[in-house]
């Protein structure tokens, strides 16, 4: 099968500019063009298709679905729903409060918050198409597991006292479910609006991600990574996780970086740990959570995830070595 994105990149770099893709500039440019075309095309397409069905997945509905369920049902449901509903990170706060208010346990709510930014259908499809199906499946399964375990740990530690007091006092009105777009024309208009708003929010991060990926691909020699980021270096994984914590990037924008790192021979576990850390933990996310939970719980939240990602890193490096 001809890959149209690779074809386009070949055409522009090799035919039009006459560059050699085995050289630095040609390689970086080829990577940049192919990934830009592919990621933006897929991003727009997936957001549009999901937008058509989004009205069936409003947060109000998710809340109703999980509320009142027993933990054994609620945890998998929260993690699964977190994965298929890529809510804007701005909605984290109302979601958090709305969930707790519906009597959904804190642990379940946290599971949802962990899984939601890390896994979404956009990231999964782009991962599968640029790195491979196997890696995408690995990423999803690991992400779901981390979300589940993180939530269960927070549940087990009984940390409700670290939720800001005002949160417990909020009484949510009976969700006057807004009317959903009924006709397909309205749905398409809504979906198109989603594409515009998500692209507006993400394009810069995606470009930065592709830029870094292209730079790594073209200009950083393979030896650099074999020397510093091989599985033999025990510090590579924790360092990858620590680097990822302050960095803010959506799961989608990290993919080109992961793609370049894997191609340079950086071990799978290290790359997974870095990706998850960038997607799930970030400064803006922490600042947002600070509105509803106390610093102690934020520290525990970040700590649990950092440790979990380090385990993921070592674990997969061990399995695949």
């Amino acid at each position: 099968m001809i890959d149209p994105f690779k074809f386009l990149a070949d055409l522009l770099t090799i035919r039009l500019l006459g560059l050699d893709v085995t050289q630095s500039l040609g390689g970086a440019l080829h990577f940049f063009i192919e990934d830009t075309a592919k990621i933006f095309f897929l991003l727009a397409l997936i957001v549009f298709v999901i937008g058509l069905f989004r009205s069936m997945m409003s947060p109000e509905r998710v809340r109703k679905l999980i509320g009142g369920k027993r933990r054994i049902v609620a945890y998998p449901a929260a993690v699964g729903l977190g994965a298929v509903t890529p809510f804007c990170s701005c909605s984290s706060i109302p979601l958090f409060i709305g969930f707790l208010e519906a009597g959904i346990p804190l642990g379940v709510t946290m599971s949802f918050l962990i899984a939601s930014p890390m896994i979404n259908e956009i990231a999964v499809i782009i991962l599968a198409s640029s790195i491979g199906l196997e890696f995408a499946v690995l990423y999803v399964v690991t992400g779901l597991t981390v979300g589940l375990i993180g939530g269960l740990l927070i549940d087990g530690m009984k940390l409700e006292r670290y939720v800001e007091d005002y949160v417990w006092k909020i009484h949510m009105g009976e969700a006057a479910l807004p009317e959903h777009p009924e006709s397909w024309a309205e749905r398409a208009a809504y979906a198109w609006g989603e594409v515009k708003s998500i692209l507006k929010r993400l394009w810069l991060y995606v470009f930065i991600g592709i830029g870094i990926g292209a730079f790594l691909h073209g200009y950083v020699p393979q030896e650099f990574f074999t020397q510093y980021a091989s599985a033999d270096n025990p510090f590579a994984v924790p360092l990858a996780v620590l680097m990822g914590i302050p960095l803010y990037g959506s799961a989608t924008s990290v993919i080109p970086v992961a793609e370049a790192l894997l191609a340079k021979g950086v071990p799978v576990g290290t790359v997974l740990a870095l990706m998850m850390s960038i997607a799930a933990l970030s400064l803006p996310e922490v600042i947002m959570l600070k509105q509803v939970i106390k610093p102690q719980l934020i520290a525990i939240f970040v700590g649990i995830l950092a440790v979990a990602f380090i385990f993921v890193g070592y674990g997969f490096n061990f399995i695949f070595s």
């Binding site: 947060p59 109000e60 979601l95 208010e101 949510m172 009105g173 009976e174 969700a175 006057a176």
Partner: peptide, 10 residues
């Protein structure tokens, strides 16, 4: 609190 009080989460 006001927003949620109206039943709106998104």
């Amino acid at each position: 609190a006001t927003i949620l009080g109206l039943g709106v989460m998104s």
